[in-house]
Design a protein around this nucleic acid. Sequence first.
DNA 1: AGCACGCCGACT
DNA 2: GTCGGCGTGCTC
Length: 802
Amino acid sequence: MTIANVIVDVPASSINQTFDYTIPERFRDILQPGMRVIVPFGPRKVMGYVVSLADESSFDKLKELADVLDLTPILTPELLDLGKWLAEETLSLYITAYQAMLPQVLKANYKKELERLRQDSLSSELEAFFAGRDFVPYEELDNGHVRFSKVQKAIQDGDITVHYLVKSRVTKKYVTYLEPAREPHLLEEALQDMSDRAKKQQQLLTFFIEQPQEIKLKTVMKKFNTTRATINTLISKGLLRSFRQEVYRNPYAQTQFDRTEPLELTSEQHEAIKPVLHRIRDHAHEVFLLHGVTGSGKTEIYLQTIQEVIDRGEEAIVLVPEISLTPQMVNRFKARFGSNVAVLHSGLSQGEKYDEWRRVQQNEVQVVVGARSAVFAPFENLGIIIIDEEHETSYKQEDQPRYHARDVAIHRGDYHHCPVVLGSATPALESYARAHKGVYNLQTLSKRTNDKAMPDVHVVDMREELHAGNRTMFSRHLKESMEQRISRGEQVVLLLNRRGYSTFVMCRECGHVRECPHCDIALTFHKHSNQLRCHYCSYEEPVPMYCPMCSSDLIRFFGTGTQRIEEALTQLMPEVRLLRMDVDTTQRKGAHEKLLNQFANQEADILLGTQMIAKGLDFENVTLVGVLTADSMLNLPDFRASEKTFQLLTQVSGRAGRHDLPGEVIVQTYTPDHYSIELASRYDYWQFYQQEMKMRKRFQYPPYMFLSLVTISHENHVTAIQTAQQIAKQLWKYVRQDTVILGPTPSPIARVKDRYRYQCMIKYKHEPELRALINKIIRQFADDMRKRDLQISVDMQPYQLM
DNA sequence: AGCACGCCGACT
DNA sequence: GTCGGCGTGCTC
């Protein structure tokens, strides 16, 4: 094989194809598909992935590839295929798909530098620029001390040249070791000759004479309470030697895990696990939907199926939503499988993520627990893929490639002939419908393992509170119940369903709301920096003292953020110890864990937070869960609003009274009769499913129809509309009779970063050629996209309709 | 994307 | 003449 087919790291649709390069002799034996290479691309050099090798090319002026970055492939043949499939499925670029499958640090870092080629006769301007150096980073041109044209001229004249560098971001961690550099008897001699004043050196030498093995430098420094200086002296005398050894960063090094043994399964669990184990043993692909109420022991089923996979020498992937990747969750896996587990989540540093990924790649672990992107873990003998809380929307990636981890998991499960288990107490409607139709194998766990009843749910009608003259955020029932529980030494969790709320700033005089100058959205107030901030473009400005419209000083903060609740609660119940958990208080690394620990140690009576407290937390002493605004999501223009409300209420109810103390849930709402709230309060998933399916059918939404969303954006309002109209027209022309094109309509946020956004929604039952059609239509606008900065993006099966 | 090339008006 | 701005085409 003399030719490499390479996908280059240039994210442009005109480059979305393989480029061929001849393989220099020295790389012929080692180069394999799945390795990263550096290739010349036009005048510069870029990184690329070798997707295949060949003996000939249809292109006749081939260049040689410049370098090979990996010793072994970082993408397996399966992942190479998967990336291709993913790109085509989501209408993304191949390069974007491959990048999404790998840790950030494996991405290339591009640098340019200037080299002076002659030591004489540079103009004084350039001489000053180089300042005695032969190589200068290109960015120094921006300092403005040298004119760009001068440099350009010098490049043309051959006095200077530009180097295009492709650097790796990989940082490896090393530990330094010390060992004696000479035979013990020679050290002995040196010790005799040593000055009496060099006490520390003597101690060190004595130590190494007695113990001539290698030892960590850090340990030595600690043991003898000394510094590098002393040791360096001994090294420079040639008595000791230091060397560095690469180590993996281990984010869980400090934590002790008590090993747990498999638990006895209930008969229900037993029934549910049996068919999964069969599939593992038969090496057969099947998708299971494990529908189990909170506390029914889904995790134990995961653990025991994984054990079977491990025993067979195969590997397992467990996906968990980002927000429930808490230490509690991780511990359960580490406790069962010890160091055989790698964990991948966003809380790790880039280096830590890379190290965990490498433990997978080098077959050092058999289990990965991680968020969405862990579905790409480079295992080669997958025995099972588990997706916990499969209904969670965070499994859908919201930027390119817009994939759903569930689809990827099923595709991989099919390839590896292994089962995929989707677990949830409140399955996504799509999943349950498939299970109901027999596409997925449905397994139900209806009982909690401890036989405890689910806590009672009280729905409080907040309209009545208002009529009764209670204008606070807390109903009388909630307030009384909180006081009662806290006086008994029990704990309370309060959930603010914040979606749909933000803390914006409004003038009470003229009603002016401060909006982002670049986006059509109100700015959000951030207390700690006292700034207004745009969540879409990161624009920031200080909070105005006076209204910019009418100069009034009656500026007020609106909305119902956790901060405001905290203040209101402190006024209402001044004695209470309160912990607030939201984006603001959990930004710092480890803050999340610290807050939870504080609560677990009963250093607070109330934990107040957003969605992130609804998942997986398990506190013995919590007996009351209050949902402050259950219907805040229901009014959003989202056909999944009811589903999300039902899911959230069910999840959060599972947080109360999981142990000996009986629990209670209080749900505050302005729409107590809404079926999602009413049925969630009765834990009736089946009724909810049927009711919601009726709605979806009536309004022609998934799972009855598929959706695809095309978004068009341009800085010129008219161009955006017109293009959107043309696209809609084209779509109408070619789609089937029963397919509907909605729009163009302005996106819910009509302008972001000074670009106007319009969208067309495609609703269809069966459109096998839709991807090809959309591609064809987009290609017609290729010219405008490049020359006039028109952007068209496509989301197949969108979750967020904006 | 990011670079070079080529055309054009403007200016030391 | 030469500088720098922008539109256009190409990248194995």
